[in-house]
Structures are given as C-alpha cells and as structure tokens.
C-alpha cells in the first residue's frame, strides 16, 4: 500500500504545481501551494507508518503549524496588494523586472 499512497502524494503534488503555474488569481495560487503542502504531509504520514516510528507524523504536525502561519501572512499580503492595486492577479504585480 505504501507505493499507492506515495504515488497519490506525487500526483497531488504535481497537480498543485501545475496549478501554481497556470492560475493567475493569487488566492487560487495560494490554495495550490496548500495542496502541495498537503501532498507532502501525506507522504510523511505514509513513511511514518512504513518505518513504524512517529517522526513522520511529527513533521507533518509541524508542517501544519507552519502552513497555518504562512496562510495568515500570505493572505494578509494578498489583501494588502489587492487594496493598493485593486487586483488579485499575480501577473499584475510585475513591476520588479528588467
């Protein structure tokens, strides 16, 4: 079963990555990032069971904590950007370039 879980995790991760690359709405991009984090968590939990110790679960727990903090800050940034630019598109914020 371990292989199945890991392949599922890889699939979800790749789908999240493609989403990050394709979507322009910053919030959706952010959701895709969360999806990738969750895929990683699945792999951690799977490996925890495979190896029979708690370390994987522990790391997954810390990832969740960090993800929560990240979401808070990321969303605050999105709100601020939206407030100044009246747009949540990541393509609009492209002033930092050549």
């Amino acid at each position: 079963m371990t292989t199945h879980y890991l392949v599922l995790s890889a699939l979800l991760f790749a789908i999240g990555g493609v989403g990050v690359l394709l979507r322009r709405n910053a919030i959706v991009v952010f959701m895709c990032v969360e999806l990738m984090l969750n895929a990683c968590n699945l792999a951690f939990v799977t490996f925890a069971r495979q190896h029979g110790n708690l370390d994987g679960q522990l790391i997954a727990f810390f990832v969740m904590v960090v993800a929560a903090a990240e979401v808070v800050i990321g969303l605050a940034i999105i709100v601020m950007i939206f407030r100044t630019r009246r747009s949540a598109s990541v393509d609009n914020a492209n002033l930092l370039k050549y």
Binding site: G17, V20, L21, L22, R24, V90, D91, A93, N94, L95, L96, K97, Y98
Partner: peptide
C-alpha cells in the same frame, strides 16, 4: 539576459519546477 526577468512570478515558478 535581463529580458529573462519578466517580473511574472509564474515564469519564475516554472523555472523553479
């Protein structure tokens, strides 16, 4: 070379991937 720096974060993400 600087043309590579388009300012589009998704281009950067693509190269990261």
């Amino acid at each position: 070379l600087r043309r590579v720096q388009t300012g589009f974060v998704r281009s950067y993400a693509l190269s990261i991937l």
